Amino acid sequence: MPKGSTFLAVFLLLVTSTSRAESWPGAEWSPGPQATGPAVEALQAYAFPQRDDATRKGVRTDALLVIQHGQVVYERYAGPTQRDTPHLTWSISKSIMATVLGVAYGQGLFQLHDPVAKFYPAFQAHPGVTLEHLLNWSSGVAWQEDYEYAPLNSSVVAMLYTLGHADMAGYTAGQGEDAPPGRSFRYSSGDSNALAAALRGIVGSQRYPDYPWTALFDPLGIRGAVWERDGSGTFVASSYAYLKARDLARIGLLMERNGRWQDRQLLPRAWVDFNRRAFAGYKPGQDEAVGGGQWWLNRSIDGARKPWPDAPADTFAALGHWGQALYVIPSAGLVIVRYGDDRDGSYRHNELLKLAMTAFGPKVQP
């Protein structure tokens, strides 16, 4: 090949790679080249086995969407879920609220070290708890995050369905203290709902009902999001945001690109770094992944194995009950949304991530 042709080929390759890396969705995602082959078939076989709707056993994926370099490369739905179905995200709502708060942080409306009580007076019972403590699930407020297997001992069941459902943040504020703030990790849906109550004080009561939309959803082009509020009018940040898979992927792309959306730095880079920084008091094995700022990290802590050993170390995620997941893998340019209805613990994050990396991860050139 002539030297000029070689130079032109390299130049075009660089331009194409740059263009691909900077692809952004408009009103709809632009489909990229749809992946095929044995690796994709293996991923699909794991995610979509024959569905058992009678006993609700086994892996029961409702949606699997893979975005690579800003383009849709794989998409499939099952059960009652379709492309235009806002799906219950459960605890992915926590990471969404953290992202909304990131916009307010970028507007200079609060600092991480601010006491929660500054914005939510009910937390005067816990004067040493800061917004950073809530974001790190380290408030020290007494809490039992038990679900179906221990409902009588569960703080979260009482908050969502019985004693606290009319005012979930108030229920959390009324709990005692079992550790000094900032000292230890304890996953708590109460901490997340207290953040939602603090947001009202941060942005003001008039702006509050629309703030997730004006601050985050509208700039990202998210349409049709639903976020339930409790009897006090506070967003249920622990559990009750509903988004289409493609809309949730927009939040993943925002995080994958360090808070930038097209030509706008919607989230400060420092905020994204905080979300992706492991809480210093987290101990290996305390949860299914390493706790960050209301996001989950695939980090090795104190020499322990990564939570998802077959995924890159920079993988982070928003996770929810019954198999909801938003995985972000910056080193592979991947954003993966997985919605599910898993009731028996059959689904494994690492297995899906391993298969996804085989199908879509960087290929080693010979």
Rank of each mutant, 00 (worst) to 15 (best):
I222Q: 06
I222K: 01
R223N: 14
A225W: 12
V226P: 06
W227K: 09
W227V: 15
T234Q: 08
T234R: 07
F235P: 00
F235A: 10
V236R: 06
V236E: 05
V236G: 07
A237T: 08
S238C: 13
S238V: 15
S238F: 14
S238D: 09
S238K: 09
S239Q: 12
S239I: 15
S239F: 15
A241H: 11
L243Q: 10
K244D: 13
A245V: 11
A245M: 13
R246E: 13
R246M: 11
R246Y: 14
R246K: 13
D247L: 10
D247M: 11
L248D: 06
L248N: 04
L248M: 04
I251K: 01
I251A: 02
G252T: 03
G252E: 07
L253E: 11
L253S: 06
L253F: 07
L254M: 05
E256S: 04
R257C: 01
R257Y: 00
G259H: 02
G259K: 03
G259V: 00
R260Y: 03
R260P: 03
R264I: 13
R264K: 12
Q265Y: 07
Q265S: 04
Q265F: 08
L266Y: 08
L266T: 06
P268W: 00
R269Y: 07
A270F: 03
A270W: 02
V272D: 06
F274A: 01
R277D: 09
R277A: 12
R277M: 11
A278M: 01
A278L: 02
A278V: 01
F279Q: 00
A280W: 03
A280Y: 03
G281D: 00
Y282K: 02
K283I: 15
K283V: 15
P284W: 00
G285V: 04
E288N: 12
E288G: 15
A289M: 14
G291M: 14
G291I: 12
G293F: 03
Q294M: 05
Q294W: 05
W296N: 00
W296P: 01
